[in-house]
């Protein structure tokens, strides 16, 4: 077994909104899907919902519910539900700034700094922003 613990990695493909821990039975399928999923997709193919919901990339569902999206399976309470986003953020660039570096507004925030810490690429953040803007 390796230093990283070596247990079955409970990961998932970026295309689903499954719970954070994937059962071992689903593991083989998920691992296969991961192999087939490029880590950084080309700009043309970016799917904001998949990036936002997938555990490997944005993982927003770890903390946020998205009541308007029936595929967003989560009971998360760590962050506020993302709903009526356009009302809260009439200006898309402010929404993008929140996702790019949440700590700029609140240094104590739990929310990862997706842009500043290069968790997501600029193109991925644009795709996520478009998706979240529509919630």
């Amino acid at each position: 077994m390796t230093r990283r613990g070596g247990e079955p990695q409970r990961r998932q493909a970026v295309t689903t909104g499954m719970p954070i821990f994937v059962s071992r039975r689903r593991f083989a399928a998920a691992a296969l899907a991961l192999l087939l999923t490029p880590t950084v997709a080309t700009a043309a193919a970016l799917d904001g919902r998949a990036i936002a919901q997938g555990q490997e990339r944005g993982n927003c569902l770890a903390c946020h519910r998205m009541p308007a999206d029936p595929l967003a399976m989560t009971d998360a309470t760590l962050g506020p539900a993302l709903q009526d986003v356009r009302k809260r953020y009439p200006d898309r660039s402010q929404l993008r700034a929140q996702i790019w570096d949440a700590a700029a507004r609140n240094p104590e925030t739990l929310m990862p700094r997706y842009g500043r810490h290069r968790i997501l690429t600029d193109a991925e953040i644009d795709a996520v922003t478009d998706y979240v803007f529509g919630l």
């Binding site: 719970p19 954070i20 821990f21 569902l61 770890a62 903390c63 399976m73 989560t74 009971d75 998360a76 309470t77 760590l78 739990l110």
Partner: peptide
């Protein structure tokens, strides 16, 4: 700090 909060389903 976040004991009792829910992360995804946990």
């Amino acid at each position: 700090n976040n004991a009792g909060n829910v992360m995804r389903m946990e």
